[in-house]
Measured scan of single mutants.
Amino acid sequence: KRPVSAMFIFSEEKRRQLQEERPELSESELTRLLARMWNDLSEKKKAKYKAREAALKAQSER
């Protein structure tokens, strides 16, 4: 099983909040919005998710 990506971790963290704030969005619209949010995120903020990705990857390799 492959470890999850930093973007996937970000998306899972933000998805529920966005669904509550924007219930009119379809699943595909929500996914596009999350992708745009990820792309607009600064490298400094992405680092938090990339660190979690690395930790999960290291854990799965044990």
Rank of each mutant, 00 (worst) to 15 (best):
V4F: 06
S11Q: 13
V4E: 15
A6I: 00
K57N: 10
F8L: 13
M37Q: 04
K48M: 13
S42P: 09
E20N: 06
I9S: 05
T31N: 15
S28T: 10
A54S: 10
E13G: 04
K14C: 02
R2Y: 15
W38A: 00
S26Q: 08
R16T: 10
K48E: 15
T31M: 07
T31Y: 02
E13F: 02
L25S: 03
V4S: 09
A58L: 13
K57G: 10
P3Y: 10
E24Y: 09
V4T: 08
R2G: 04
S11H: 06
R62S: 13
A35E: 14
A58D: 15
R16K: 10
M7D: 06
L33F: 04
Q17A: 10
K50E: 14
R15N: 02
L56V: 12
E27S: 05
T31C: 07
E12V: 06
D40V: 05
K45Y: 05
A6P: 03
L41S: 04
K44A: 10
E21T: 15
S42H: 05
E21R: 09
A54I: 07
N39S: 11
P23N: 02
E13K: 08
F8V: 13
L56C: 06
E21S: 13
L18E: 01
A58N: 15
N39I: 06
L56G: 10
A47Q: 14
E21H: 06
K45P: 02
K48Q: 09
S60E: 14
Q19M: 15
E27Q: 07
K46T: 02
Q59W: 05
L18Q: 01
P23C: 05
S60K: 13
L33N: 08
A54R: 13
A35F: 05
R15T: 04
E43V: 04
R36D: 15
Q19R: 14
R16Y: 10
L18T: 09
R52K: 15
E29S: 05
Q17R: 08
R15Q: 03
D40T: 04
K48W: 09
Q17C: 04
Y49K: 00
K44Y: 03
P23H: 03
Q17P: 05
E12T: 10
K48S: 12
Y49S: 01
F10Y: 15
K48T: 14
F10G: 01
T31V: 07
M7P: 11
Q17F: 05
M7R: 12
E27K: 06
K57C: 12
M7C: 11
A54L: 11
K46D: 00
A51Y: 09
S11K: 13
A51W: 04
A58Y: 05
K1C: 02
